[in-house]
Design a protein around this nucleic acid. Sequence first.
DNA 1: GCCAACGTTGGC
DNA 2: GCCAACGTTGGC
Length: 154
Amino acid sequence: MAHWLMKSEPDVYGIHHLRADGTNMWEGCRNFVVRNYIRDEMKVGDRALFYHSNVPPIGAVGVMEIVSEAYPDPTQFDPNSKYYDATSKPEKPKWYVRDVRYVETFPRVVTLAEIKEHPVLSVSQVGRKGNRLSVSRVTDEEWAIFMELGHRTS
DNA sequence: GCCAACGTTGGC
DNA sequence: GCCAACGTTGGC
């Protein structure tokens, strides 16, 4: 089973929204690397860190699970959506989504500052300087560290 | 609000 | 196919 980290701005869609919704579509990816992760590489049952970007405290705040196969992102065909893409045609969609299910909110945030200081997490995909991908890979080793830090109670 | 990083677009 | 210009992301 692979692991992922998925970014969202908490005032747009935060983990509290997913907790309330239970399951939701992860919409709006408009980057080809991320599209390929979502469409081709994720598997049902994979788990992902929910990461809050832009608004402090920035960092990994909880866990969700991938619960659907990839399907075309409906917002790309909706002229009223901010994610509308006039260059994408229904017979050949450019952008895909997965449904995700809420699993848990960490007792504490694993902050970006902590990620950058950590010998292992600092060289992870999300920890590297200049990484702007909204979805990134998390190795098994990194995942275990995130779980430990997110549940630390000392 | 600024700016570094980097993806995308479009001229050639 | 190259690359400059531009737009976006996201940390600070």
